[in-house]
């Protein structure tokens, strides 16, 4: 592996920037994702920063099922994230549609619209579970 690619890999693992996106969930997962970034759980120590724009992000953290209204917009957003991109589905309904399965307004889990790398189940998952997901994602980056 060349020096440059080693450097890039090192930088990618040390500072994965995330974009947090709610695609139609109930907010609970969002506040847990946010709580994970806050002083008590503090995943910022892994170099993770919440970004405002998809163009700055490496990892897309998605919560909630895909609603019919959001699907086209969500695809567009996904396309804006630069390669290589990773997707983390947080919460049961991001994984499979969860409690909303069968509602006419939703399509299903995140993976009905885009490929997903890490699934974090729970409704909502506890911050510990989200941190576990983050650690698995970092391991995945390592083996890239």
């Amino acid at each position: 592996m060349g020096l440059l690619s080693r450097l890039i890999k090192w930088a990618r693992i040390k500072s994965p920037w995330i974009l947090h996106l709610n695609t139609g969930g109930c907010n609970a997962c969002d506040i847990e994702v946010l709580a994970t970034l806050m002083p008590r759980f503090d995943v910022e120590r892994f170099g993770i920063i919440l970004m405002g724009s998809p163009r700055h992000a490496d990892v897309l953290v998605c919560t909630g099922p895909i609603t019919k209204q959001m699907k086209p917009r969500f695809r567009k957003l996904y396309e804006q994230v630069p390669d290589p991109k990773f997707v983390m589905a947080v919460g049961n309904c991001a994984c499979t549609g969860g409690v909303f399965k069968g509602c006419y307004g939703i399509e299903g889990g995140i993976d009905t619209a885009i490929p997903v790398d890490i699934y974090v189940p729970g409704c909502p998952p506890k911050p510990e579970a989200i941190i576990d997901g983050v650690a698995k994602l970092l391991a995945k980056l390592q083996n890239l």
């Binding site: 139609g24 969930g25 109930c26 997962c29 506040i31 209204q69 409690v99 509602c103």
Partner: peptide, 30 residues
């Protein structure tokens, strides 16, 4: 954008199932 169709879905679920669904209208006011 977050329209999921909860009111309709409640008609097809029992009160016990519905209790878990209405909670997820909004997680902060669950």
């Amino acid at each position: 954008y977050v329209h999921r169709g909860i009111e309709k879905a409640l008609e097809n679920r029992t009160y016990i199932q519905g209790a878990f669904l209405v909670e997820r209208v909004c997680g902060i006011c669950s």
